[in-house]
Design a protein around this nucleic acid. Structure first.
Lengths: 203, 203
DNA sequence: ATGGGTAAGTAAATATTACTCACTAAGGTA
DNA sequence: TACCTTAGTGAGTAATATTTACTTACCCAT
């Protein structure tokens, strides 16, 4: 009963102020980079006072991490829903590449935070958001290993290296879009990337 | 005569204070991320006053860009010296991958700045440092195009995509080292990466 | 119903820190 | 000598992230 109470408390929808603050930052980041956004900016666009930010977030960075976490949650669900029906490993990995690229492209704020804004501070790697990244990253590795075991992927390929190439390619491909707002034909680009990667990785 | 004077002025070795400031930031960044380093920190480790920083640099970020530029200059020279003797495109690209990875690995501060600290602010893309990046990036593209023309690389490969995969792979591969200080066997990793990339890209 | 506890939110003070400005000292040069 | 330029100083200022003491509203157990 005790734990049930605490549990419902954890799961219940966050207070409106908290939501408003997170949305405000997300919105502001469509135009500005994180460091150029002030706590005053955030508070006014959220329609709350500056002090409230520090009721729900340890500091400004913590707010950023929680916003990222929110975006990553929906991203992760989307990814999982896309690959669960597929059988072949190569196919799964291709879908991950295309879907990730598409997600970054559709939600540039999400991509911006993940690729440009958080990695420079050590605290990020202790955050819940980074835990999500680890899960996503782990998923890819598992699929690669499965692919090797089932003979779809060459067994002289280093799984970690393949994952690095995949993730690196995806990230670098959308950098231009995220930074300069260039348009990106995700279907075409992901096809090119898959072409390069798998004509080597596929046995 | 006017312009000659100005020219020698530009080329002559920078004042000791400027050098000390740049070295100080570089040194501090071996331990801390850029945002956690204060101008006071920089001044004291450099043994100058805070005001002097703003004599030579527009702002704190500009200092960072100039430090990056310095590192990139030596990096670029190193790269060029490594590939100029080689004939084959694939070979050149392989060397670039290995050498870049090695450079990042040896000079973590350089890698840290380039990959984690500058890309989030728009000003960076107006800086001299970014001009250097463009040159480096252009070099790779030229080699790829040459490789395609000479039949070393498949002609259905998109040159930009191949470059993205290359650069992305390199960067992602050294991220763990740069962030967490993990050791990296550059020879092995670059071999793995080349293996993945070129078994598809090589005709 | 009511009063005590807790969650949501406020307003103003504080402390850090990037950046400015008016100044000095030391060459070099005409 | 007088002057100009360059290197450097040190005390400020202004912006802004964070803290603190306080108010209000609501829930639930007596």
């Amino acid at each position: 009963m005790e734990s049930e109470k605490r549990n419902t408390q954890l799961l219940r929808t966050p207070p409106p102020g908290k939501i408003k603050i997170m949305n405000a930052l997300s919105e502001l980041m469509r135009e500005k980079d994180f460091n150029s956004i002030t706590t005053a900016d955030i508070a006014t666009t959220a329609g709350v006072t500056e002090g409230l930010i520090y009721k729900y977030f340890r500091d400004k960075k913590d707010l950023l991490y929680q916003v990222l976490n929110g975006h990553f949650q929906t991203f992760q669900n989307y990814i999982v829903s896309k690959i669960e029906t597929r059988k072949s490993s190569i196919e799964k990995l291709s879908i991950i590449i295309k879907t990730t690229l598409k997600s970054y492209s559709i939600n540039r704020v999400f991509a911006r935070i993940l690729l440009l804004e958080v990695r420079n501070s050590p605290n990020y790697f202790e955050s819940d958001a980074y835990d999500m990244v680890k899960i996503y990253s782990r998923t890819i590795l598992d699929i690669i290993n499965q692919g090797i075991k089932e003979g779809e992927i060459k067994d002289d390929i280093d799984p970690h290296a393949l994952r690095q190439v995949m993730l690196g390619s995806i990230e670098h491909a959308c950098l231009g879009e995220v930074i300069f707002g260039k348009d990106l034909d995700t279907d075409k680009v992901s096809e090119h990337i898959c072409n390069i990667i798998f004509r080597g990785a596929k046995k």
